[in-house]
Amino acid sequence: MNTISFKESREIMLETLDSIDKCCRENNIEYSLCWGSLIGAIRHHGFIPWDDDIDLMMSRKDYNRFLEVYNDDKFNIYTPLKDKNCVHLLTKVYRKDTRVVFNNYKKKSLWGLWVTIFPYDNVPDVGLKKWEMKRTLLTKLYLFKTFRYFNNEKLILKITKFILQISLAFCSSFTLAKKIEKHLSKYNQIKTKKICIWDCSFGFSRFFYFPSELFEEYVDVDFDGIKSRMIKGYDTFLRMYFGDYMQLPPEEERVPSHDYVAYYV
């Protein structure tokens, strides 16, 4: 397999973003750049110079619609809601002829150079703690069932995972993923004060809350020459999560956030 350079990987991600954007515009699906990609669009008009991925976010309704209609021969969607062999709760769109190998995991990934899509959901104005408790239980069960990649797990965690994986033997990861989606979507038919974005990466799960009004309007934005979209309330969103996002981090922190090597296959 031939290694893909940092510059080439970005070109592939931009190609992926362009494919996603075209699908969304053709099907009236709204989306926004997210996290560091949104900072990059505002501060650098594209990638943050040291960034190594692209993140997007969609409402659950638009996200489900996207999974239904997206069709590009050059790309695949990696998500437990479409692929029953998928063991991660993240949704990634990746080019078929690429793969990535993470240096701190035992196994190579099942996807290539990617764009991640984060769905967001309405959360209840009343009874939030109860909703969170069930959400946390379901996501932890999923992670314990599917996650096997850390090299440096403590013995007690390995034993706990083994016991839980046996107890969950007759419940598929796909079934658990559908249960999680059903729970997260419970309040999407009503207008609520806050939305929640779920970041479920390797072995951990984090939930971030934002005012719903930030997601009511979207505008076009240039991302390294690709016409993309972002929420009109991006400034409040970024300040809530990052603080002064226009301030560059210390030089020693200007490094890629993912430790992987990409290849053509």
Rank of each mutant, 00 (worst) to 15 (best):
S5Y: 11
E8V: 08
R10K: 15
I12L: 01
M13D: 02
L14W: 09
E15P: 00
K22A: 14
C23S: 07
C23H: 00
C23V: 12
C24K: 05
N27M: 01
I29C: 06
E30T: 13
C34N: 15
L38G: 01
I39F: 00
A41G: 06
H44W: 06
H45W: 00
P49S: 09
P49A: 05
D51L: 09
D51H: 09
D55N: 13
L56V: 06
M57I: 09
R60P: 11
K61G: 13
K61W: 11
Y63K: 04
N64S: 09
E68D: 15
Y70H: 09
K74A: 13
K74M: 14
N76G: 12
I77N: 08
I77E: 09
D83K: 08
L90P: 00
K92L: 02
V93D: 03
R95G: 12
T98Y: 08
T98P: 01
R99V: 13
Y105R: 15
K106S: 11
K107P: 05
K108S: 06
W114H: 11
I117T: 06
F118D: 08
V126M: 10
T136D: 15
T139E: 13
F144Y: 15
Y149E: 14
N151Y: 04
E153P: 08
E153F: 06
K161H: 08
A169W: 10
F174I: 01
T175A: 12
L176N: 01
L176T: 00
A177W: 00
K179D: 08
K179Y: 01
K179C: 02
K179A: 12
Q189T: 15
I190Y: 14
D199P: 06
D199G: 07
C200G: 12
Y209D: 00
F215Y: 06
D222H: 05
D222Q: 13
D224R: 00
D224E: 10
K227V: 15
R229E: 15
F237E: 14
R239K: 15
F242Q: 06
G243F: 10
P249L: 00
P250F: 05
E251S: 14
V255C: 01
V255Y: 02
H258C: 01
D259K: 05
V261G: 09
V261C: 09
Y264M: 10
